[in-house]
Nucleic acid binder design. Structure first.
Length: 591
RNA sequence: GUGCUCGUAGCUCAGUGGAUUAGAGCGUUGGCCUGCGGAGCCAAAGGUCGGAGGUUCGAAUCCUCUCGAGCACACCA
């Protein structure tokens, strides 16, 4: 990576000057040289403030000048530093590095050769990550809120793979316990309705309705009726189950209903191009004894205590804000007991890191999950929890809150029906997980260029269109690009050269973007990057004629730039989990 | 009450302790099609970075306080 090369170069320069006695370094050694991108182009391609870290102004200025002089002198002699054009100093001691235009242009070749792997960096060195996301309960369809974890998790997984990690994407189904009983009773209600039997909505201890129901104000919402029908079909119209004793009946119907809902959720994920390697069922942990084994392990380790007839685990020992009940006084295990078994299961599978993508309503889990991991002897900083904020949908400038409890659920499937999977993904990924997402439905439904969800795809389609045109005109872009000498473009008029260099600089950022997304666990940078690349290509295309290029050599070089742009755009779309179309269809014709 | 997250342009939001000028998309206003193509390009207007202190050579970025919004604080899952 370019930045790493420059970092090594500058570090070596500091060491050399220090050796000569011309530069003092702290006793702790040379500080890490941070190489960053300046905001303004005139400040070069890269810059470092290392001189300011070594000394305060005005002495930092001297140091910067010494370093710059040394670098300008030695860089041309080292083949690895051939990318450097010149090094300058500015302000209180910044060192600005300008890259060689010929070198930048020649990187188009490297990008084309990298193909679908372009931008890959080896940050992970094959270390393993378990990435758990969505994990919505199989008691209803995925909605606009908890679906957010799906986009963040899936794209984050793609990016981490591009960054050299071995990623297992995982979904955890809570298919055991009380909520499945509730689901069973709710489903039974609809089964009885369908059969024309007397039916009553189940009620909780407080006499209020309790369970999972269709929204009766919305005639299109017949989700649970549909699930009930499926259960009827596989139980001889209920004959196999409805006569069973109460608890057994609820459990059995609930289990069947949950199985159908899981299928439904998997289908939703599938159409959104969200992929999982492992679908994990909580129920398995119960039946195969892992829940019990987890509790025993903690008991032997001395982390459990009894109080008020219940069994608690002392998570506060590891920074949690309160201890958690594992076994209720009534003898049943809690949800936390399953969590213990699950995290133990993951650790036993040998993952180097565990990443959880959870909604804001779960932020209370951070302390408990990290504490659990530590009770099994695992370092807390290998557990990363990404908390994403809630989602509102904006319809006609009115923001509506999505909440299951308020009975105001909007299914993710309904949204995808309206705007398609690609736009859905882009809109969800445009925002940092840390900020609330206002989904602008009106904007997402637009079909033209004003829809930001389509701009990257339009960019890719345009590249493909240009290449298609070239073939029609009798050229062979792929083979011509092979023989191109990119450096000829250096003689282009300034306005054209600027567009070409700008495009190459943008394309070369991909590695840094992937690295940043992977390090910060923030996939959203990819969307903005994709838009920047598309914009850079448009300007290039606007300024630099290809079929009407001044010479064969220039045309061939521009074919190479175009192919490099296609490579990067396709890679970005693939990481975002979107399709990379060669042409865009308009559903409605203008005028 | 305690804790977590967030307050940046009319709207929705990027922004990695750095540079006289804090960016993008949408929206608004104006310009550019007999030249690969308009699925685009150029330009303008629009900001007390919620507020007040502090740390620093340097703060939208770090710290404290404060105001506002969301969420969480179960022997629920």
């Amino acid at each position: 990576m370019i930045r790493d090369t420059l970092q090594r170069m500058i570090t070596a320069a500091i060491a050399a000057l220090h050796e000569r006695g011309e530069l003092d370094v702290p006793e702790s050694g040379i500080p890490k040289v941070e190489v960053e991108r300046p905001q303004q182009v005139v400040h070069g391609d890269y810059a470092t403030a290392i001189a300011l870290k070594l000394a305060r102004p005005p002495r930092s200025r001297e140091i910067a000048a010494k370093l710059a002089a040394y670098l300008n002198e030695t860089a041309p002699l080292v083949p690895a530093y051939e990318l450097v054009e010149r090094v300058e100093t500015a302000g209180p001691g910044f060192i600005n590095i300008h890259l060689k235009p010929e070198w930048l242009l020649r990187q188009a070749r490297t990008i084309i050769d990298a193909g679908p792997d372009v931008g890959a960096v080896d940050l992970g060195r094959g270390s393993t990550i378990n990435l758990e996301f969505v994990s919505a309960n199989p008691t209803g369809p995925v909605h606009i809120g908890n679906g957010r974890g799906g986009f963040i998790g899936d794209t984050l997984g793609n990016v981490l793979r591009a960054a050299g990690y071995n990623v297992t994407k995982e979904y955890y189904f809570n298919d055991a316990g009380a909520q499945i009983q509730k689901l069973g009773r709710s489903t039974e209600y609809y089964m009885r309705l369908a059969l024309g039997l007397p039916a009553e909505k189940p009620k909780g201890a407080d006499g209020k309705e309790e369970g999972y129901f269709d929204n009766e104000n919305d005639p299109d919402d017949t989700f649970y009726q549909g699930i009930a029908r499926l259960v009827l079909d596989e139980t001889h119209q209920g004959a196999d189950v409805l006569a069973l004793p109460d608890d057994e009946r609820a459990a059995l119907i609930g289990k069947r209903a949950a199985a159908h809902i899981m299928q439904h959720i998997r289908a939703t994920m599938q159409r959104l191009n969200i992929h999982f390697d492992v679908w994990f069922n909580e129920g398995d942990l119960v039946t195969n004894g892992e829940v019990q084994a987890g509790i025993e392990f903690l008991r032997d380790a001395g982390y459990l205590f009894e109080q008020d007839g219940a069994t608690w685990m002392e998570t506060t020992r590891f920074g949690d804000d309160k201890d958690r009940v594992l076994i209720k006084s009534g003898g049943e295990t809690t949800y936390a007991a399953s969590d213990v078994a699950y995290i133990r299961n993951k650790l036993n599978r040998g993952f180097d890191r565990l990443i959880y993508v959870l909604g804001a309503d779960h932020h209370g889990y951070v302390g408990r999950l990290k504490a659990m991991a530590q009770m099994f002897g695992y370092s807390a900083d290998k557990v990363h929890i990404i908390i994403y904020q809630h989602v509102n949908i904006k319809v006609n400038d009115v923001s509506m809150r999505m909440s299951k409890r308020l009975g105001n659920v909007v299914n993710l499937d309904d949204l995808v029906d309206l705007v398609g999977p690609d736009v859905t993904r882009f809109f969800y990924l445009m925002r940092s997980h840390d900020t609330h997402l206002d989904f602008d439905l009106k904007l997402a439904m637009k079909e033209g260029e004003e829809n930001p969800g389509l701009t990257v795809q339009y960019g890719h389609a345009r590249v493909a269109g240009v290449l298609r045109k070239a073939v029609e005109a009798g050229y062979h872009p792929e083979t011509e690009a092979l023989g191109a000498d990119l450096a000829v473009l250096v003689s282009d008029p300034p306005e054209q050269l600027a567009a070409e260099l700008n495009l190459m600089r943008e394309l070369l950022k991909l590695e840094e973007i992937i690295e940043r997304c992977a390090q910060a666990l923030e996939p959203h940078h990819l969307t903005k990057y994709g838009m920047d690349v598309a914009a850079a290509f448009h300007v290039f295309y606007d300024r630099c004629p290809m079929l009407r290029a001044e010479s064969d050599a220039v045309r061939m070089a521009r074919f190479a730039l175009t192919l490099a742009a296609r490579t990067v755009l396709a890679r970005v779309l693939s990481l975002l989990g979107m399709s990379a179309p060669d042409r865009m269809e308009r559903a409605t014709e203008a005028e």
